[in-house]
């Protein structure tokens, strides 16, 4: 349904996204995960037909987003990051306007249907200027659903909603996602975990990981971090710990704190403890930290992948 190949977008000298490739099948809910400024909105804007990529190609439903932009816009429902609404219109007028632009037959009935879907029926005669942020978000979602699009592109759909509404919107996404393709961006990891079939983690314009939430999780479980507290200089104990089989990535945090990672299947903690004690150190504390999705996210998005354009500039005097 969505096919993106080597998508690149430059804003002047800054490269917002670099060589992105991914795809989505019908009925799939794809989560686009990344810190602010990672290129999520840029990618979604290109997919919505709002602006073209600098290089690369994006297809939705077999239509090219640049050359067949109009066809793409007919089958895509798009909720931008800051929901653009006309404050001087009532909710009903606004949705009717959008429905007319889509040439929807029996527009009034369809508007009412959508209003019910997003739970805004009681506010349909109210002016948009008087709506709360959450309600505006729901109107924005409603306008994206009006023409029963095959593909929904939602940029931060739950932002500004209260917890009850967040749950509602997530359920709505799950329900719609059964027969339609949804691509949503978020920086809330648990949200991606709950509603998405597949997660793309993007950082500085690059995809750094792509997997199902479950497998990403098991990948986290793949390595576990253990924290050690030792009396006396921890640095001296480092070689001892390194020697233990199954231990990787030993780091000294402070004077008396050490950290190491171990494989999930092999618990080497007793071996490490023995090594330390036999080496003449006093082991005060040993604590296992399970890596959360947050940690993996931070790990993946930390730095190692600086886009080339940025590197080039850093090299210049």
């Amino acid at each position: 349904m969505i096919k993106v190949t080597k998508l690149t977008k430059d804003y002047g000298a800054r490269r917002a996204i670099d060589n992105l490739s991914f795809h989505a099948e019908r009925g799939e809910v794809i989560g686009f995960l990344g810190p602010n400024g990672a290129g999520k909105t840029t990618t979604l804007r290109i997919l919505s037909g709002y602006m073209p990529p600098t290089f690369g190609k994006a297809e939705i439903g077999g239509f090219d987003v640049v050359d067949q932009s109009l066809e793409v816009r007919k089958i895509v429902g798009y909720l931008p990051e800051t929901v653009p609404l006309y404050p001087d219109m009532t909710v009903f007028e606004f949705l009717k306007y959008k429905a007319d632009l889509h040439h929807i037959p029996n527009a009034e009935d369809r508007v009412d249907e959508v209003l019910e879907m997003v739970d805004m029926l009681d506010r349909s005669e109210g002016y948009i200027a008087a709506l709360s942020k959450g309600m505006r978000q729901r109107v924005g979602l409603g306008q994206a659903l009006l023409h029963k699009p095959e593909v929904l592109i939602l940029d931060e759909p739950t932002i500004g909603l209260d917890p009850a509404q967040i749950i509602e919107v997530r359920n709505l996404i799950k329900r719609i996602g059964k027969e339609r393709t949804i691509m949503l961006s978020t920086h809330i990891l648990s949200e991606a975990q709950q509603v998405c079939d597949r997660v793309l983690i993007i950082n500085k314009g690059h995809i750094v990981a792509e997997d199902t939430p479950e497998r990403l999780q098991s990948r986290l479980a793949g390595s576990q971090r253990v924290e050690l507290r030792i009396r006396k200089n921890s640095e001296e104990a480092m070689p001892l710990i390194k020697k233990v089989r199954g231990v990787t990535n030993v780091t000294v945090t402070t004077d008396d704190l050490l950290e190491f990672e171990m494989g999930a299947n092999q618990d080497v903690r007793p071996n490490v403890a023995r090594a330390i004690v036999q080496g003449g150190f006093d082991l005060l504390e040993m604590k296992q930290n399970t890596l959360s999705l947050e940690d993996i996210f931070l790990e993946l998005t930390r730095d190692e992948t600086t886009p080339p354009s940025l590197k080039d500039r850093a090299d210049q005097p």
Partner: peptide, 8 residues
């Protein structure tokens, strides 16, 4: 304008 230009 983003709203208008992402409509057909």
């Amino acid at each position: 304008l983003e709203f208008l230009l992402t409509a057909p």
